[in-house]
Design a binder for these strands. Structure first.
Lengths: 104, 104
DNA sequence: GTGTCAAATCGTGATATCGCGATGTCACGA
DNA sequence: TCGTGACATCGCGATATCACGATTTGACAC
């Protein structure tokens, strides 16, 4: 399993260095805590509008937040029709945890 | 052992979200890789000027970087006379590693 | 097609970070 | 006491991030 590069580490830390983005990643651990949706959250992820509602930010801000998390490879986006669903990328998150104490 | 608060997590991630600061924390794992000093690095930490030299930044920038890491509780400063020595705070770093995958 | 809703992108002012030189503060030695 | 060296802080312009409303794109229903 490939390790994270320094650039990947920095962008992941930057993404987590914001209280709302950090909270969102925590919320996504339990996708079923969000309102129900056509496709279950633990399969495809949580719909953006539900994330937006809980974070209490505008649509554009919510979209930006998720784009930042996605660029850092911390979440995976699954688009179904008009809906974007986001779920955690446990692979990257685990590698990040290993990096701390290892490389860092 | 007390866990890190959300604010502490955010400020730690912010501090690590910069390539130079991230590199510095890695360098401090081996204090003896720096030039020799009166008091050994693995006891009191590395003198600021050595960090500055390796990071190749101005004195004020180096001081700011270390202040940021210190505010995030990622390093500990030991002042001896005129010299500020910095070493890793393994306690916080370990707690940060545990937080990922746990809270996060 | 037309309208509508979801989401991404654009454009923005406000705010924060970056990195530096200049200045201030403190410890030491002559 | 005066100078010097080490470090922190201040003040600054440059740049990036933040959060939003407005606009655009794309998917769907009719």
């Amino acid at each position: 399993m490939e390790d994270l590069s320094d650039d990947q580490l920095v962008s992941a830390f930057k993404a987590l260095g914001h209280p709302t983005r950090l909270a969102i990643l925590g919320w996504l651990k339990d996708g079923n805590s969000f309102p129900p949706q056509d496709r279950p959250a633990d399969e495809v992820g949580v719909c953006l509008k539900h994330i937006q509602a809980r974070a209490n930010v505008s649509q554009s801000t919510a979209s930006q937040f998720m784009a930042t998390l996605q660029r850092a490879d911390l979440v995976i986006c699954t688009r179904i029709g008009q809906f974007s669903h986001y779920r955690r990328n446990e692979r990257t998150i685990a590698k990040l945890g290993e990096a701390i104490g290892g490389d860092i």
